[in-house]
């Protein structure tokens, strides 16, 4: 979720669709996560009028959120490198 907001702000519906395209999760569960991350001050929200329909709630990554994202990415890379290495060693034997 943090990755999706790194480059641009997005509104709720868009975020939910992006996530549920990739991951097996009921779409309703994305909003509780968004709220949680907003409470933890990783996101801020603002309303913006759209050309059609009601105003949309946009989510924006905060500096704290960006920092957290980079922490997680580093950890993830280390972890997946480790696993890849193990797999390679195992397969090449």
């Amino acid at each position: 979720m943090l990755v999706l907001l790194d480059k641009q702000d997005r509104y709720g519906y868009e975020l939910v669709q992006k996530i549920s395209d990739q991951i097996e999760i009921s779409e309703g569960s994305v909003y509780p996560l968004l709220r949680r991350l907003t409470k933890e001050e990783y996101f801020t929200t603002y309303l913006q009028e759209s050309s059609e329909g009601p105003p949309r709630k946009y989510y924006k990554l905060t500096d704290k959120g960006r920092e957290y994202l980079h922490e997680l990415l580093t950890e993830w890379n280390e972890f997946s490198n480790g696993v890849n290495q193990l797999i390679e060693e195992g397969v090449c034997k």
């Binding site: 709720g12 519906y13 549920s20 009921s26 779409e27 309703g28 709220r35 009601p54 949309r56 709630k57």
Partner: peptide, 28 residues
């Protein structure tokens, strides 16, 4: 938030029932 989600879904041509199904159960 969920009202907005319904509004967006309907705009995309989904029915209310379809949207409810994709959201999952309110209890969860």
């Amino acid at each position: 938030d969920y009202k907005e989600y319904y509004a967006m879904g309907i705009e995309k041509g989904k029915s209310e029932q379809e949207i409810s199904a994709s959201l999952g159960h309110p209890k969860q």
